[in-house]
Nucleic acid binder design. Structure first.
Length: 490
RNA sequence: GCGAAGUUAGCCCAGCCUGGUUAAGGUACGAGCUUCCCAAGCUCGGGAUCGCGGGUUCAAAUCCCGCACUUCGCACCA
């Protein structure tokens, strides 16, 4: 069994995640639910995101509506651009991406916005036919990956947002005015996005409904190098992947050598890397990959992906795009609102540019699970070596045996801790079995009540990774857990 | 979307070819006994209308048809 399957099995058996609507046969693919264990872990991950990105950098966080009006997506370009041109064979029904097929056969790179008739003309001119059966093609069509919905009794056209950031762009003017905004201003949002994928696969890795954490940094395009806080992290070594080769280089050097275009981008890429270091992902299996022109999203003027290597290949966790003024300009034009702001440094009006970090939460959760998974053959155990601050359960409270008042003592300790910490009481089965159960869902500590506890009010704390125990006063337990569990390791 | 394989308890799976009592086993789970420290042992227990729907038949997990989902390949994709 490969690692992906092992994690999948663990997720299903231990309540991390599982298919949505699974008791019904018509459950659509691409929708997954987080179970009790998974939702705890996801919440802890979100706490870390708030701590290490939002609060650390002083970002503003919003929580926007998931349903948005049609105009939003006219302005954003999604109505026309967020589509794949498709051609279907009349004879065998095979479908192909029109632009890819044309490029492959004729070498013609079609522009993003090629119209249907242009595509049809090229097919006719070049006498293209189905590569499978040689049959002729139908007229090309476009498949839009947004979910269209109808609002109210008149069924007004609206869409589920395909990315959370559109809320940020359209909320920007109010936030900037009311929150005493000043460029550069970072606005963050964590929430659901929806994309009607043609073929969702691999559980959390390609979903139709998924969590994104997006950070949009609004900046003055003339002051992209004026980022004082870059000072403190410019010596950080980044693992860049450019034109199929790795370069380990400090953030400062990357800017000096024009690999990273400016200090602002370098600062936020470094902040992102520092964040992921704290998730427990093996940073030696990550990279910041520079995207080529053909790979970039339609709105990006340059782009890096933060990627992580897993058992099923390199996985994109964060898309880092410089969107220039594409979004604000689009929304300004369609809404006829003036979205310029004043930069008080020189009192000039500027339409802010945007650099974005678009993070996939579900993929991040999966990657953390996979990189934390450890099979300890020596002790015949499987251990999820999650960082304590990401663990769904922080500690199990266990009476060594249930007799002689140990059960009652353990339950008392449990009730004293459970409001402050995600702890778990378990008296079922042998002590070894209970340790194994905790290890499997990543609980970093196990508190065991034994006979000595009754005489001197001490308990043992077992460390998940070392299996070693130390004995402390019950009165010190809360402090210990707080210190050990929330201590950030970098 | 195309092609192939698969779907029986939380999980792994037997049974299907050759239709016929109460669908077997392992593991996990729960209760008890035992034991103060790493998946031990013993006893007992709950849990499946066999993916969904239809058909054939006196009788369907088993034969036939349709659908859904999963995995893999192709095609595609943040």
């Amino acid at each position: 069994m490969n690692t992906y399957d092992t994690i999948m099995k663990l997720a299903l058996e231990r309540g991390f995640y599982f298919p949505s609507c699974e008791i019904y046969g018509d459950a659509p693919a691409g929708f997954w639910d987080y179970g009790p264990t998974g939702v705890n872990m996801k919440n802890r991950f979100v706490e870390l995101w708030r701590r290490e990105l939002v609060r650390r950098d002083g970002m503003l966080e919003i929580d926007g509506s998931q349903i948005m009006s049609k105009s939003i997506f006219i302005a954003s370009g999604h109505i026309t651009n967020f589509t794949d041109p498709m051609i279907i064979c009349k004879q065998c029904g095979s479908t192909f991406r029109a632009d890819k097929h044309i490029a492959e056969i004729t070498g013609h790179e079609l522009p993003e916005l090629a119209s249907g008739s242009e595509i049809d003309n090229i097919i006719v001119e070049n006498k293209l036919s189905c590569p499978k059966c040689g049959g002729p093609f139908e007229k090309s069509t476009r498949f839009n990956m947004m979910f269209k919905i109808g609002i109210g009794p008149s069924n007004d056209e609206a869409y589920l947002r395909p990315e959370t950031c559109q809320s940020i762009f359209v909320d920007f003017p109010r936030i900037f005015k009311t929150m005493r905004g000043r460029l550069p201003l970072a606005i963050a949002q964590l929430g659901k996005s929806f994309r009607n994928e043609i073929a969702p696969r691999q559980s959390l890795l390609r979903l139709r409904e998924f969590y994104q954490a997006e950070i949009e940094i609004f900046c003055n395009p003339n002051r992209l190098d004026e980022v004082p806080k870059f000072e403190e992290m410019k010596k950080k070594v980044l693992r860049l992947y450019i034109n199929d080769s790795y370069q380990e280089i400090t953030a400062q050097d990357a800017v000096d050598q024009l690999i990273i275009p400016n200090n602002l981008v370098a600062y936020y890429l470094t902040l992102l890397v520092l964040f992921y270091e704290k998730t427990g992902i093996d940073m030696n299996r990550t990279r910041l990959r520079q995207l080529s022109t053909s790979e970039k999203a339609f709105y990006a003027s340059f782009a890096f992906d933060f990627e992580v290597e897993t058992s099923i290949g390199w996985l994109e966790l964060v898309a880092c795009n410089y969107r220039s003024d594409y979004d604000l300009r689009g929304h300004s034009t369609v809404s006829k609102q003036n979205l310029h702001v004043i930069d008080p440094i020189d009192n000039t009006k500027v339409l802010p540019n945007v650099f974005e970090l678009s993070m996939g939460i579900d993929r991040s959760i999966y990657s953390i699970l996979e990189h934390s998974f450890f099979e300890d053959f020596e002790h015949e155990r499987t251990v999820l070596r999650l960082r304590p601050y990401l663990a769904p359960i922080l500690a199990g409270i266990l009476p060594l045996i249930t007799k002689d008042g140990l059960r009652e003592k353990a339950q008392l300790i449990y009730s004293q801790l459970k409001l402050d910490f995600p702890v778990f009481y378990d008296e079922s089965g042998s002590i070894g079995r209970r340790y194994r159960r905790l290890e499997e869902i990543g609980a970093p500590f196990a508190v065991t009540v034994d006979r000595q506890t009754l005489s001197d009010d001490t308990v043992t704390i077992r460390n998940r990774d070392t299996m070693l125990q130390l004995r402390i006063q019950i009165s010190e337990l809360s402090n210990y857990l707080h210190k050990e569990a929330y201590k950030l390791v970098s």
